[in-house]
Design a protein around this nucleic acid. Structure first.
Lengths: 222, 222
DNA sequence: TCGATAAACATTGTATACAATAATACAACC
DNA sequence: GGTTGTATTATTGTATACAATGTTTATCGA
């Protein structure tokens, strides 16, 4: 999720923030690249002020580290980070599925099913870019359904962190078919109010994603 | 953990950040209190610039929400948030204990044991303020021992979030004695390289903490 | 040539000035 | 009286100026 709690994509600060973030997450910068406020400002045609604010936010997110009076440096996401994130996510997605089962409304269930149907359609057609979006949407809908501000916050962050990895690996081998099938299974468990099963399935779903990524080869992305 | 990745407590920005953060977490502000840059700056004797930066960081952390061109508003932590955090933490602390078991060095093991000994001493003596610090330290050492930047980051954040709750409830009833005993048990499992047991114990430890908090009465804190 | 020192430079930290936007108060109108 | 439009005010968004700090380079002496 990129809309973050209020990142304000339309202010200069928001634009700069999104831009640098994207540049780091997409691997344009190398580890420890120095991010000079003036240079970035000049490049984007803004003053140092919005750049500074963007860098401070990125620091809190862990994407850059700032040494006082020296500068801001890029924190690349390492292969280990990605693996850790997926292990953590598998637990939290499980919890999320459980809570969603307990709290989901009929309307949210319908939205989820609609997303699922679309996913199944585009899986058949092999529309991978569309599938990527729908995959994100499915998970976001589940996050919301869980009804926990905190869980939503942390899962959204992680989800966003590994965006690049997901984008690259989602279409690898027979993952799309399996992934969509797993989504369907999770959905059915949630609908049937079987929280234990929903949790188990969601955990497995993420674990399978990790395996797929490992087969693909993480080093090809990072 | 308050030293954050580089929050820079010694710059004005860092001081303002810590101050506002503390004021929110300690409940000095009410939900949706408007935080005006000029007012805060005047109160702390600094210009708007560091205040702005602090507010932007707090937004990302979820402690304030900013409406563009309007202002920054306090996001209180609700009782449900606290409960959610503890449920999430119980899982992640479990994972942390597992990873710590797998990665901990002999030196880290010794540090941990030292903390533990001190805890046991101060538990006997009933030094609750000291115990609070040692409790934090024990967990932080375990976070570090797990050897995962990501897990450390998210757990430290959560740990910090519920600081106030912990401070208030740590001395409630016979919790100090039990808590220290549980720490000892976790330590022994880690030392014995029994990852399954360490994970299970760590999870239970947090669950017991939740129960203690619930008996104490969350509404008394928030 | 090497090392130390200091001066020049680059970069961040903070304050202030100005622009843009939103909130408020008040008047004109129905 | 209520409503709408406008002027005023307050507040944030951005740019710029200045201060403090860190880094590099040039110079001097041994």
């Amino acid at each position: 999720m990129s809309d973050k709690q209020g990142s304000d994509r339309y202010s200069l600060r928001g634009k700069v923030y999104e831009r640098i973030r994207e540049d780091i997450l997409s691997g344009r910068y190398q580890q420890d690249t120095e991010l000079k406020e003036a240079a970035i400002g000049a490049e984007l045609g803004v003053s140092r002020t919005p750049v500074r604010e963007a860098l401070r936010q990125l620091e809190l997110e862990g994407l850059v580290h700032i040494i006082p009076n020296r500068g801001a440096y890029v924190n690349m996401i390492t292969a280990k980070d990605v693996q850790d994130i997926y292990v953590i996510r598998s637990m939290l997605e499980g919890l999320c599925a459980r809570w969603a089962t307990e709290h989901i409304t009929d309307e949210q269930l319908e939205d989820l099913e609609e997303t699922l149907c679309l996913s199944e359609y585009h899986t058949q057609k092999g529309h991978y870019e569309k599938l990527y979006e729908l995959d994100s949407l499915f998970h976001e809908q589940l996050y919301r359904a869980a009804g926990s501000r905190i869980l939503n916050h942390v899962l959204s962050d992680f989800h966003d962190y590994v965006k690049r990895v997901r984008r690259k690996t989602i279409a690898f081998q027979d993952r799309p078919v399996k992934s969509t099938r797993e989504h369907r299974a999770i959905f059915e468990a949630v609908k049937a109010k079987d929280a234990d099963r929903a949790e188990e399935l969601a955990r497995e779903h993420i674990k399978h994603t990790i395996e797929n990524i490992q087969v693909y080869g993480l080093d090809k992305i990072l």
